[in-house]
Design a protein around this nucleic acid. Structure first.
Length: 564
RNA sequence: CGGGGUGUAGCGCAGGGGUAGCGCGCCUGUUUUGGGAACAGGAGGUCGUAGGUUCAAAUCCUAUCACCCCGACCA
């Protein structure tokens, strides 16, 4: 491709809207164009890179034996009603009506359709296992699109869906997918953490996320500095060192007018937050639940939801709390017996805590679990912090921000049961296949490639992803000899099967050409100029290091072919 | 959905009742050509949208829309 023919426009300034490096660079290099919030076009250079990422993914999927299919984006809403996901996705679901006013869904993912398709394929255990995958656009009406390609409303995703007759088969496929994913990230030169993840509303046995660590990410992963333990903070468990060596002191009521928050209590009494007991109320499927935790920690609502086996969990409203006679700001489990109370394990790690007095403007000091109050259940419901130690090895835990660039799930039989997909096993009994699903956001992967491979001058593409293999620059394309020689190299490279972008512009200075080549990030640059031609050489420049060296003109093609 | 911010030329921004501005980019010409060239000339705007106030609105008021950031949300 010649630059004089390429539809592109590089920008001198990065757009003021762009906060993350991938967003800024993809805009500045003219790779993407925004049409609306979270709605982007991929321009020619970006699409080349996307296609390369897709072919890496296809190769790794095909290697596992997965088979590619295409499915409809527009799906009957009835299908989604069967699995209850019309409600589960809620406002995130794009819906529309056809001319007969029948409800349709713009598919945010494809479990419903792939499961339905499989009903026509699976009858016997002999038909299992198999894995289907797709690389297709998905639609989600995200509450807040952000950061360029990181969180968008229309996006391309590779999703694979496996169907197995038994757990062993599912485990085997899951394992092979994890390996394929690691290979994909490696080829894209993106470092990843494989983290245990919450399996979400649908449940299922195992789930792992692949997280690219970066400050601009939306997820937090807890990782052990000593062992392999890595988990999303939603799921992570840790242990708090017990500090309950003190002897239990007599409790005493203290007047604390106007003091309601943990911070205010600490300031008022000049104590640390870890010497307080924090009590909160939640509404779990309409039932009020009191939750107690050490004051310096936070509730992990995902864990709490699991403990309560609740489908809907939210903070209780002031009205709901007061209806039970509880006092906001001075709430505690002291003397409370008519409400379900869950205590975090942290409340037994320390003695002589300070808690609310269940009367306005009152707190009680030196309260101790069991001596002074009881709960219905002690459970791990805290969000792991760097104060926690690793549950596996007692090592130090670290919190890392990152972008989720892949997620694999063991779904179990949820979809096969709700959509009536079954098979006959060896004993002639009807069974539901066990499913797994394995997703990678393709556009997000491109963003992650750029995030993890750039410098202050522009993108530095890994060679497997780069839109072209070589960026050929005719420094002075006005010079007839220079242009012709460069053009000969261009033709020859294509003849040798090397893809090449040719900066043949006659109206741009050397500086502009170098800047653009650095923005585009094609790994290998070839510089042809009158000066070089006079010396009978050609210059090779590596984008990553910006290192330059000369090769004899006659050996240019061979050299390039050998070095890519 | 809450909080904050921004909408003026392709991009980045200034201007705050009285002729629509700057830088970059764009077009034409001349000279240039190894790190975002110089000079000369030129094109490009219903100032997000709709109402209102006013002799007069990009500017003041009201509403509304869009986009960005933080949070909530998020298989």
């Amino acid at each position: 491709m010649k630059l004089t023919q390429l539809a592109y426009k590089t920008l001198r300034d990065t757009g003021s809207d762009a906060e993350t490096s991938s967003h800024a660079l993809l805009l500045q290099a003219g790779f993407i164009h925004q049409l609306g919030a979270g709605i982007y076009s991929y321009l020619p250079l970006a699409l080349k890179a996307i296609k390369n990422i897709e072919s890496i993914i296809r190769y790794e999927m095909d290697k596992t034996g997965a088979q590619e299919i295409l499915m409809p984006h527009i799906q009957p809403q009835e299908l989604w009603d069967l699995t209850g996901r019309t409600t589960a996705f809620g406002d995130n679901l794009f819906t529309l009506k056809d001319r007969r006013q029948r409800g349709l869904v713009l598919a945010p993912t494809h479990e419903e359709s792939v499961t339905t398709i499989s009903k026509s394929i699976i009858q016997s255990y002999k038909d299992l296992p198999f894995t289907l995958y797709q690389i297709q656009t998905k639609f989600r009406d995200e509450a807040r699109p952000r950061a360029g390609l990181i969180r968008v409303r229309e996006f391309s995703m590779k999703d694979a869906y496996s169907f197995s007759a038994n757990e062993d088969s599912l485990d085997e496929i899951y394992e092979s997918m994890a390996i394929a994913y690691k290979n994909i990230y490696q080829k894209c030169e993106i470092p990843v953490l494989m983290a245990e993840a919450d399996s979400g509303a649908i449940g299922g046995k195992d789930s792992h996320e692949f997280i690219y660590p970066t400050e601009s990410g939306e997820d937090t992963v807890i990782t052990c500095s000593n062992c392999q333990y890595t988990a999303n903070v939603e799921k992570a468990i840790g242990i708090l060192p017990a500090e309950n060596h003190d002897t239990e002191a007599p409790q005493a009521e203290i007047s604390t007018p106007g003091v309601t928050t943990i911070e205010e209590v600490c300031n008022f009494l000049n104590i640390n937050a870890n010497q307080t007991l924090k009590s909160l109320c939640y509404s779990a499927d309409g039932q009020l639940v009191m939750v107690c935790i050490r004051g310096d920690l936070n509730i992990n609502e995902v864990k709490l939801k699991h403990i309560l086996n609740a489908t809907e969990l939210r903070a209780a409203s002031t009205a709901e709390i007061e209806q039970e006679g509880l006092v906001l700001g001075s709430m505690s489990p002291l003397g409370i017996s008519n409400i379900n109370i869950i205590g975090d394990t942290s409340i037994v790690t320390k003695k002589n805590l300070t808690a609310g007095g269940n009367k306005p403007g009152t707190h009680i000091v030196n309260i101790n679990y069991q001596r002074d109050f009881h709960v219905n259940q002690i459970a791990d419901i805290s969000t792991v912090t760097e104060m926690h130690l690793c549950n596996e090895c007692n090592g130090k835990l670290e919190a890392v921000r990152g972008i989720e660039i892949g997620h694999i799930f063991k779904l179990g039989s949820f979809f096969s049961e709700s959509l009536g997909l079954h098979f006959t096993d060896q004993d002639g009994k009807q069974q539901f296949p066990l499913m797994g699903c394995y997703g990678i956001g393709v556009g997000r992967l491109l963003a992650a490639v750029v995030e993890s491979n750039h410098d202050d001058k522009g993108i530095i593409f890994p060679k497997n992803v780069s839109p072209y293999q070589v960026h050929l620059i005719a420094l002075n394309a006005n010079d007839e000899t220079c242009y012709e020689k460069a053009h000969a190299i261009y033709d020859s490279l294509w003849d040798h099967g090397v893809t090449c972008l040719f900066d043949d512009r006659t109206d741009q200075s050397a500086g502009v050409k170098f800047r653009d080549s650095e923005l585009f990030g094609i790994p290998l640059q070839v510089i042809v100029s009158p000066r070089n031609l006079n010396n009978d050489i050609c210059e090779i420049k590596l984008r990553k290091t910006l290192e330059t060296y000369s090769v004899p003109l006659g050996e240019t093609i061979d050299h390039i072919v050998n070095s890519i």
